[in-house]
Design a protein around this nucleic acid. Sequence first.
DNA 1: AATCCGGGGGG
DNA 2: CCCCCAGGATT
Length: 347
Amino acid sequence: MIFQNKLITWYLIHKRDLPWRHTNDAYVIWLSEIILQQTRVEQGLPYFNKFLENFPTVTDFAAASEAKVLKLWQGLGYYSRGRNMHNTAQIVVNNYNGIFPTLHDDLIKLKGIGEYTAAAISSFSSGEARAVVDGNVFRVLARYYGIDTPINSPEGKKQFFKLANELLYTEDPALYNQAIMEFGAIQCKPKSPDCSICPLNIECYALKNNAVGQLPVKLAKAEKKHRYFNYLVSTVDDKILVRERQAGDIWQHLYDFPCIETTGFSTEEDETLEFTVKSNFGGETEITFISYKKHVLTHQIIHVRFFALKNYIFNFNKQKELNWVSFNTLDELPQPNVIRNFIEENF
DNA sequence: AATCCGGGGGG
DNA sequence: CCCCCAGGATT
């Protein structure tokens, strides 16, 4: 138990004071865990406070509209987390009488809760003996034990999951889980950790073998795709033409503008753009360039051009997803950051 | 097994 | 510029 004891001892001295560590309410822990998926603590903290303020209980959460949830989520990214939370809150109210489950086997069935989150909520709220395996745990174990199996391969996931559960300190799973994650976040951090002050530096495989910078191993990611969005901006009086994005692409159920996607911004492709604009909005339609923005996502780089749309004919029957909204209404609708920023810069 | 899903901070 | 972040769902 040397490994576990040292981690816990380190944790009790160095842990940050974070609000979700003061509760064992599964609902509150769920809020924090979903928000913190692929998200740094400092980035997620204001969102955690905002959600808890707006939805003190899971019943409050379930009663809200999906748009309200996504509006609160705006700017945090990975919006399926918000949609899944909305669904899960309603399942908890309808099937669990509004009492948030605390057992792994119940939690894992809920949308947006996978192995990591089920282990986190169950151990933190009910003390269930489930080891968390997140990015921090991968890194600490890979370095300490010198495991070079890629952490994003199926074998790697199985191997690390098995080891993590063997190491779990079953006398206090919650404490141990918090300890190893905090240790990974603060001491055994991704880049240039200060191993001279690490309590595990004597036994650490990576430090002994000068491999701290090489572990953990990760399989190469797919190359980012380039996409070219031509947004058509149209305002009449205090209203603006918006589109609700649908399933099958990024930013599902968020709002942007009518958009014509092309394969590039070359002269030839711009002729295609103009042709498409006129066939959709009438032959007299004119577009004038406003601004360009590059927007980078995990798997795509989106080149965004904004155009002012003029002299067009608008057919609601052909363009069902489009809608006129006032700027006041728009402020209540969830939007991707690139749209939000454009609106704030131009209106 | 591979790909998709955001946005921001830090080296 | 590149990497990573209290991952999960879909194909």
